[in-house]
Simulated scan of single mutants.
Amino acid sequence: MVIDMSDTSDRLLYAAINLIAEKGYKAVSTKEIAKEASVSEMTLFRHFGTKQGILEAAIDRFYYSTSMKELFEKNIVWDLEKDLFMISESYHKLMKKNQKVILIAFKEGNSIDGLYNQINKHPRQLKELLIEYFLEMKQQRKIKYEGNVEGLAMAYLYMLYGEFVSRNFVEGHQITSIDGDEFIFSAVQLFVNALKEKDNNFSAV
């Protein structure tokens, strides 16, 4: 998502994410955020009300749910391998771009009331998009899967998320030497080989 630094709201949100990720939620004041964004504190209050209000708005602005929803609406071609590659690569690019939001979640999740729910609505929405995708692929008889489709969506989401976290946030404990592209290739091939209909003779569940 493009940040418009000529827009007052965007400048405030960008400043809030950067400062909170660097110093912690409690250590950053609304006055400091406003100063970083080159506006008055009153302007911040007028736009977002409170410090928690600006953090919640920043998470919604800079996390990935809107981008992923647009991707599913516009870029899906109903080819399992192509779609999973596209979803996985886009997910990793967005997560990399929004590392500061994720860092705030790790650092502040237990100290800010409602923060986990605010952040978790993004993976929940992605899970629902994946469920809808896999159900439609079953309906089109392009995959064969007899289990709970929510479990399938969760397995794919956790695989992507787990690899991203271990690579970017677990210092000294990275469990693989392969790069992100190699991981995505392996993950996609695993799911394609497990789900791809090969004989067109199964009964849809």
Rank of each mutant, 00 (worst) to 15 (best):
A58H: 04
Y25K: 07
F85P: 04
N201D: 11
M95C: 08
L84N: 01
I143P: 01
F85N: 11
V77P: 01
K31L: 14
D179A: 04
K97D: 10
N120M: 14
M154I: 09
K138F: 07
G109L: 09
Q139M: 07
T50K: 13
L12W: 01
R141K: 14
I119K: 01
G109N: 11
S186Y: 15
Q99D: 14
A15E: 03
F202C: 03
E36I: 04
L157V: 00
S9L: 06
L115P: 00
N201F: 13
N120D: 12
E70I: 00
G147A: 05
F106P: 02
I102R: 01
D79V: 00
F62C: 05
K96R: 14
E81Y: 06
N117K: 11
R167D: 11
F62S: 02
I59N: 05
E70Q: 11
A153I: 00
Y14E: 09
K82W: 02
Q125R: 05
K142M: 09
V149Q: 07
A21W: 03
E70D: 12
F48E: 04
F62I: 08
N117M: 09
F85Q: 08
I87D: 00
F134E: 02
E197Q: 10
Y116M: 15
A105G: 13
I112C: 04
K26V: 02
E163K: 08
I184V: 14
M1C: 08
Q99R: 14
D113L: 13
A58T: 02
L55V: 01
H92L: 13
E70A: 10
